Measured scan of single mutants.
Amino acid sequence: MAEAPPRRLGLGPPPGDAPRAELVALTAVQSEQGEAGGGGSPRRLGLLGSPLPPGAPLPGPGSGSGSACGQRSSAAHKRYRRLQNWVYNVLERPRGWAFVYHVFIFLLVFSCLVLSVLSTIQEHQELANECLLILEFVMIVVFGLEYIVRVWSAGCCCRYRGWQGRFRFARKPFCVIDFIVFVASVAVIAAGTQGNIFATSALRSMRFLQILRMVRMDRRGGTWKLLGSVVYAHSKELITAWYIGFLVLIFASFLVYLAEKDANSDFSSYADSLWWGTITLTTIGYGDKTPHTWLGRVLAAGFALLGISFFALPAGILGSGFALKVQEQHRQKHFEKRRMPAANLIQAAWRLYSTDMSRAYLTATWYYYDSILPSFRELALLFEHVQRARNGGLRPLEVRRAPVPDGAPSRYPPVATCHRPGSTSFCPGESSRMGIKDRIRMGSSQRRTGPSKQHLAPPTMPTSPSSEQVGEATSPTKVQKSWSFNDRTRFRASLRLKPRTSAEDAPSEEVA
């Protein structure tokens, strides 16, 4: 009796068929016929556990003709996506030579605008209408194809895939403007070719909807975003200037109206006075309405000098805001240009540092100066060695804690006790272990408590650290204090090793 083939788990290929790579489910599931010992083939499952149809090819690079078809379809799909992405970037994010197409579109729109203006002049109306009709045909074809291509290429973005995504893309403001202008152009052409009475009025009214094509030149909205950011950044200043200017306008108009309503027919109503105030304070000055009385002229002159300053403030605020924003954008561009080279330089330096163990090129690091100058660790070890030599091999803490019996001779020589300023008595072995921070803190506390006492003391002649007598400086308080830590004499004296002298005989010792 033939044995059933062993159940295979995992992703390994079956024996005897090495080139074939078959994806098997996580659990080997066989058909009921196979479990019962029949000759049925096992049921194939996909990666998600769903059964595959009987005629479906197995996924994998070596699955025969199905694999070749899959490779061809995958390559075609990649080319399709690449083309779609390229078209989308050309239309929505132009760079380099892609601006040539947008310059061509701008020339078409500008020519249409010029011809629309010439069509309103009686001398050039006939020729402009003929040229404009031909140009409209060209623009309908160009913009119609462009609109379709834009909607198709938007599928390269995830949020615009599918018919719902394309509809979302078509609802964008600039796409809506394109659609309105396209419909208006078709209506103008249809009305112009019919030759009816309505054609002339339709051409004159709907052609100027094509002015909206100038708005579509900035599809990404960079200028509007820049203007919005400047207004938002200086909103408080703008609101303040406009508010005060509006108050000056209504008060000036009302007072001039009261002064001129009886003697001047131009100011017969408050609305006429508001019109005069707006034209005057905005420095336009049509001259259609002028005050005639001396009181009205004085009020107009005073409020004009006051109001023009507030009406001119928004222009200066926006101008300075634009300058600052442009400078910030230039700085951001320079930062973006330098970020990648800086990151590459840091990575290269780290690779060199991690692979080169000698690091002989590091001549400006802490390790280099640590090898030249005595390190703080060596100074600490030197302090501890000196203290243990004086205390008979014991550390200062051990000397303080060691009990001394009554009447027993002390094995240590008597030492002079010292007192730290602002604290109780402490171990004499710690007097010379006072660090730089303690010395600086002690000097600052003395300056806070009594700076007036220092200038009363007789001035001391500054001497070099080499000429100081070591026996005289029994305490860190003898170090000359200065008002600034930048004094080199104080810094050098604080680094010197001060020996400890006994109370009975204080021989001067120098520590090399």
Rank of each mutant, 00 (worst) to 15 (best):
P5L: 09
P6L: 07
R7G: 09
R7C: 03
G12S: 08
G12A: 05
P13S: 05
G16V: 01
D17N: 11
A18S: 03
A21V: 12
E22D: 02
T27A: 01
T27S: 05
T27R: 02
Q30H: 01
S31I: 01
E32G: 03
Q33P: 02
R44P: 12
G46C: 04
G46V: 06
S50G: 14
S50I: 05
P51S: 12
L52Q: 07
L52M: 10
P53L: 08
P54Q: 03
P54T: 05
G55C: 02
G60V: 11
G60R: 09
P61A: 04
G64C: 13
S65W: 01
S67F: 12
A68S: 14
C69W: 13
Q71R: 05
Q71E: 05
R72L: 11
S74A: 12
K78Q: 13
K78R: 04
R81L: 09
N85K: 01
V90G: 01
E92D: 12
R95S: 12
R95H: 14
G96S: 08
G96R: 05
A98T: 03
A98P: 06
V100L: 03
I105L: 00
L107W: 01
L107F: 00
L108P: 00
F110S: 12
S111I: 10
S111C: 10
V114G: 08
T120N: 01
I121V: 04
Q122H: 06
E123Q: 06
E126K: 01
E126V: 04
E126A: 08
N129I: 08
N129Y: 08
E130K: 09
C131G: 15
V142I: 03
L145F: 06
C158S: 12
R159P: 12
Y160F: 07
R161L: 14
G162E: 02
W163C: 06
Q164P: 01
R166L: 10
F167V: 05
F167I: 14
R168L: 13
R171T: 11
R171G: 14
F174V: 15
V176L: 12
I177L: 11
F179V: 10
A187T: 07
A190V: 15
G192D: 00
Q194E: 03
G195A: 02
F198I: 00
T200A: 14
A202G: 14
R204G: 04
M206T: 00
I211F: 00
L212P: 00
M214T: 00
V215G: 00
R219C: 06
R220H: 01
G228C: 01
V231F: 00
Y232D: 00
I239L: 01
I239S: 00
T240I: 00
Y243F: 00
I250L: 09
F251L: 07
F251I: 03
A252S: 08
S253A: 04
K261Q: 14
K261E: 12
D262G: 05
A263T: 04
S265A: 02
D266H: 10
A271S: 00
L274I: 10
L281M: 06
L295M: 13
V298F: 02
A301V: 07
A315S: 05
I317V: 12
K325Q: 07
V326G: 02
Q327E: 13
H330N: 11
Q332R: 15
L345F: 11
L345V: 06
Q347H: 06
